[in-house]
Nucleic acid binder design. Structure first.
Length: 477
DNA sequence: TGAAATGTTGGGGCG
DNA sequence: ACGCCCCAACATTTC
């Protein structure tokens, strides 16, 4: 039989991989292919941190396949050209892949499907990334959901497919196929190697993902209480693995469900976080401008400010607000940021600094190892108040209070802002108010070895309230 | 998955 | 003992 191409994308795993399972069951010899397509993705081509992860993850997948006698063929270029070319080279009779939901990917894959079908090639696409396809869930009126809670209630009633194991037998295509060497893609940074700090925290690949899940399952009992604490390891830290498809949401879902009776909240809190991920994909699918335009058209005229100096301070963790700086430095050093802190830094950028959410979105896109078009866009719009089910305009996080509440000892700040190590907990989240003696004992000279706040918090809050209130509809009297 | 302002209540100090 | 005041502590409303 003619070979079947398994086109890997954001599904870099062997277990619970429907496309791979389909190929294995087809009886055809498999050719596993990955295409680095920086052209089709355009403005949303992989950022720097993503490329580091991809480098590692492709190597891991290649090793897994090699152990089974197979190989991952690497090609680079627009998939619309590359995929048909590989089909011709090996006279493939079929192509199978798992779906992507980025607007550019949907368009590309739809076109490819038509093109291949017209050439007499069998094609099939599968769901490997979502609990429920965006088009399979709708409001009673048949419209896409725009509010999380009803979406979650609808999703919660669904039966989630059980994850499937790695196919028992895989027969690989034996012919020769040209492929790039992974190293030739130069995905990882060389000099300066800013990714050095990533490695202690992350093990890209399917095995690393499974290890992270196992680790989380041990800690899952504490999740409802401690998940908002950035100073602790209380969350799953699965986000990059989920983004790259090294683990499926079905696997995480059922792993938690299996422990229902051991968990204080029956695991509902974590499941609802998986549902937020689903909600983001639902929104991106139905509102494809989500990454670029505010969902709420009323924001078209919003008076965002262009403040390059403030943005620079924010992105480098030099705002003078400790919890913000700790978060931005955690992101830079480890490629990841605790979700609570993401909300804090995003609120600070969009409200206190009035900088467009798209600027923050773009920075996260470049620096997050879990940079995900749907989650990133939906999250930023939620914080900015212009998205679906968005935070009300008046919900402005006070980074001092948030710090004191969720990093009560200041350990998180000390870990990433070593300048502040010597300050006691009661001063560490507001060094500009610390008494001179405490500053002296800590060796801290505000404005010298740690910045003064880039904005007065009360003034920034007042300015944001005025700007956001201005675009609210007139109040009833 | 807010924060700040404003309102209410009740205990304790004190004349 | 009583009334007054202060002010935590908590609740409500407003942004």
């Amino acid at each position: 039989m003619s070979p079947i191409i398994v086109w890997f994308r954001q599904d870099l795993r062997l277990a619970d991989n429907p496309a791979l399972a389909h190929a294995a069951a087809s009886g055809r010899p498999l050719l596993c292919l990955y295409i680095l397509d920086d052209e089709t993705s355009g403005r949303w081509r992989f950022g720097g941190a993503s490329r580091w992860w991809l480098d590692e993850s492709l190597a891991a997948l290649g090793r897994e396949l090699a152990l089974l006698g197979g190989r991952l063929v690497l090609r680079r270029g627009p998939a619309e050209k590359i995929l048909p070319a590989v089909v011709r080279e090996i006279s493939a009779g079929a192509v199978v892949w798992n779906r992507c939901y980025e607007p550019y990917a949907v368009a590309r894959d739809t076109a490819l499907k038509t093109h291949l079908a017209n050439a007499g090639i069998e094609t099939k696409s599968c769901n490997a990334a979502l609990l429920v396809e965006p088009w399979q869930i709708a409001t009673k009126a048949g419209a896409p959901f725009r509010v999380f809670t009803p979406f979650w209630k609808a999703l919660r009633q669904r039966e989630v497919t059980r994850p499937a194991p790695v196919p028992r037998t895989l027969t690989f295509f034996a012919g020769t196929v040209a492929g790039d060497a992974l190293a030739a893609w130069r995905l990882a940074p060389i000099a300066p190697n800013w990714a050095d700090g990533f490695r202690p925290h992350w093990a890209p690949g399917e095995a690393g993902a499974a290890a992270k899940l196992d680790d989380f399952l041990i800690r899952a009992v504490d999740y409802p209480d401690l998940r908002d604490r950035p100073d602790l390891v209380a969350t799953s830290r699965l986000s990059p693995h989920l983004h790259w498809g090294e683990i499926s949401p079905r696997q995480a879902w059922h792993a938690i469900r299996a422990k229902t009776y051991e968990l204080p909240d029956d695991g509902e809190k974590y499941l609802s976080e998986l549902a937020w991920r689903e909600f983001a994909y639902h929104l991106l699918y139905h509102f494809p401008t989500l990454p670029d335009e505010p969902l709420d058209a009323g924001f078209a005229e919003f008076p965002w400010t262009d403040d390059p100096a403030a943005f620079e301070a924010w992105s480098k963790g030099q705002t003078g607000i400790p919890i913000v700086d700790a978060g931005m430095r955690e992101l830079w050093q480890t490629g990841w940021m605790h979700n609570r802190v993401r909300m804090i830094v995003a609120s600070f950028l969009t409200k206190h600094l009035l900088i467009p959410w798209q600027r923050g979105e773009a920075w996260f896109w470049d620096t997050l190892l879990d940079a995900d078009l749907a989650n990133n866009a939906a999250g930023w719009q939620w914080v900015a108040g212009c998205g679906a089910d968005a935070a009300p305009f008046f919900r402005i996080f006070n980074p001092v209070l948030q710090g004191e509440k969720f990093d009560p000892e200041g350990d998180y700040v000390r870990r990433f802002v070593p300048e502040l190590t010597g300050l006691p907990a009661r001063h560490i989240h507001r060094p500009w108010q610390a008494p001179a003696i405490a500053l002296a004992e800590a060796g801290l000279r505000p404005g010298r070895n740690y910045p003064l706040p880039v904005v007065d918090l009360a003034a920034g809050r007042a300015r944001a309230l005025a700007a956001f209130r201005a675009r609210q509809p007139a109040r009833k009297r």
